[in-house]
């Protein structure tokens, strides 16, 4: 399968790999997927007091498309307000990375990871 240059770039030079302190009140963590399914994404956001995402980190177990989707997601999250981050749609990831049809679930997982991280942040700060 031939992947797009954008996808290969995110795969070879993944942005924002790492771990934020999940105990920090300003950090939201999303862990989605399952090892049996062949992909697990952990996406974390750090939100300023003004509600802006200052930092985002990910780690992903999965195929090239899953890694690229989560890398792209962290890039898009940085600088966005929490409310704008919720509007990130998986189809935008599909378009940007030119994901083939069998890999669309990787973008869905990335969207799930974003929503799950925001939910965690909101619950902590409710």
């Amino acid at each position: 399968m031939a992947y797009s240059n954008q996808l290969l770039d995110h795969f070879k030079n993944p942005r924002n790999v790492g771990t934020l302190d999940k105990e920090n009140k300003n950090v939201g963590t999303g862990l989605v997927g399952a090892p049996e399914c062949g992909d697990v994404m952990r996406l974390q956001i750090q939100v300023s007091d003004e509600g802006v995402i200052e930092d985002a980190k990910f780690k992903t177990f999965g195929c090239g498309s899953a890694i690229a989707s989560s890398s792209l997601a962290t890039e898009w999250l940085k600088g966005k307000s929490v409310e704008d981050a919720l509007k990130i749609d998986n189809m935008a990831i599909v378009e940007e990375l030119a994901l083939p049809p069998v890999k669309i679930h990787c973008s869905v997982l990335a969207e799930d990871a974003i929503k799950s991280a925001i939910k965690d942040y909101k619950e902590k700060n409710a």
Binding site: P14, V17, L31, P35, V40, R42, K59, T60, F61
Partner: peptide, 10 residues
């Protein structure tokens, strides 16, 4: 490299 990226390895 892939393990450095892998949340389940961590």
């Amino acid at each position: 490299h892939m393990r450095d990226l892998s949340p389940i390895w961590e």
